[in-house]
Write a protein that binds this DNA or RNA. Structure first.
Lengths: 220, 220
DNA sequence: AGCAACCAATCGATCGATCGATCGACAAAA
DNA sequence: TTTTGTCGATCGATCGATCGATTGGTTGCT
């Protein structure tokens, strides 16, 4: 479908050059249509950006909520959240980069709406940490700062991950879970917990619905 | 001086709207000169960006090297690095944001040069973690991944810090040091280390040379 | 079956606005 | 008189967006 082709082209270019540096004609060229054709599928260039960001954030949010519904222990939730976030940001690097770096290009209502999605997601992390604190399994001085640190550290994966890199996605995902558990000093019986102590359901990735970009990669 | 005024204007706008979204005329307006005058002080718009990024990265790098010269123990070095990085990114938020988000706008030689500065800085972190591993004071599965995680988590401060926020810069800086020490599981005598165990020289900020933006803020 | 009416899809041409950058003129300072 | 700083005017290129025309497939009426 042409529409999908246009969205994929925009996604690639927004991620590589940034929203402002990408022209309508760039997208048209990449999608192998004329710039006029673009306007048959969208109203403005910003609409493309909004669609990408909404899709990415909503999918992440849905997956996160499913994780919370499946797992109870805060240390399990945290590890699964890290795996979900890291894996999402690696598999669909392009969408993740756009979501994380092009927020300032948004204007008006959509800006507020996207900000709301993001803070809703942050709140889920906040609750996990609070839960872990109440159960005495985490040791955290400041929950809000810890959430910001954890999120930022996991989000960074999108900036450097490559399937050809020295570490597999699974290694990275597990390693980041361990670092997160260490950061909050997750302990049971006075022993520092690692992800291998938690027996999470096989691939935590099981929950993951494909993102926009990942979906296109499947049925190509 | 007019030149300084121009650089400050560019810094503010690049940080707020991004390099590509900022026009020459925007900068001229903000600096209260005409766009022609800009070209008396620079050759291209990209030169402004390069100057900002070089200044920021080089100052950070110099300060980091001084920290390494003053402190020996890896846990001290790590805590001081975190404080330096966090404090830099909070005090001179604008420069930090530009350095961290506008790399892709660079072209040609400068792109390579800036990338070299950045990787040189990363290497210092790498050495600290390796040192801590060799002394058995850190527990880290994968040093490179840990460096990326730590850097990303500290860099994120520039995105949300505000002097009017609920936490003082000192609180944030100390808190992030503790989280970093926890992430690498820094231990002496089997006891998890915190920043208060390390008796660092009074303000670790002592080493900090002012950045471009911070400097202008001083003699204003 | 055949024709008319419709509609989604695509195009080339082009709009006014703005882009980064240049030029020569003019004024103040050295 | 030369140098340094500043300006208005303007360059060609490109920007996001719009327009009417054309195509090809689908529907509905006879």
């Amino acid at each position: 479908m042409t529409k999908e082709k246009i969205f994929q082209a925009a996604l690639r270019l927004f991620a590589r050059k940034g929203f402002e540096a990408t022209s309508i004609r760039d997208i048209a060229l990449e999608a192998e249509v004329t710039s006029s054709t673009l306007y048959h599928y969208m109203k403005t260039k910003e609409d493309l950006l909004v669609a990408i960001m909404q899709e990415g954030l909503q999918t992440l949010l849905e997956n996160a909520k499913e994780v919370l519904a499946e797992l109870e222990a805060p240390e399990q939730q945290l590890a699964a959240f890290v795996q979900l976030h890291v894996t999402s940001h690696a598999i669909d690097k392009l969408t993740a980069l756009v979501v994380d770096t092009e927020f300032r290009a948004l204007t008006g209502n959509t800006r507020v709406e996207i900000a709301r999605l993001r803070s809703e997601y942050e709140l889920l992390w906040q609750r996990i940490l609070t839960g872990g604190l109440e159960q005495g399994v985490f040791t955290i001085e400041n929950t809000k700062l810890a959430v910001l640190a954890l999120l930022q550290m996991c989000t960074g994966v999108a900036h450097w991950y490559s399937p050809d890199g020295p570490n597999s996605l699974e290694e990275i995902s597990l390693n980041f879970s361990d670092m997160a558990l260490a950061l909050v000093q997750a302990k049971r019986n006075g022993q520092q917990l690692t992800v291998s102590d938690l027996d999470l359901p096989e691939p935590a990735r099981f929950f993951m619905k494909p993102w926009l970009g990942a979906a296109a990669h499947e049925h190509s």
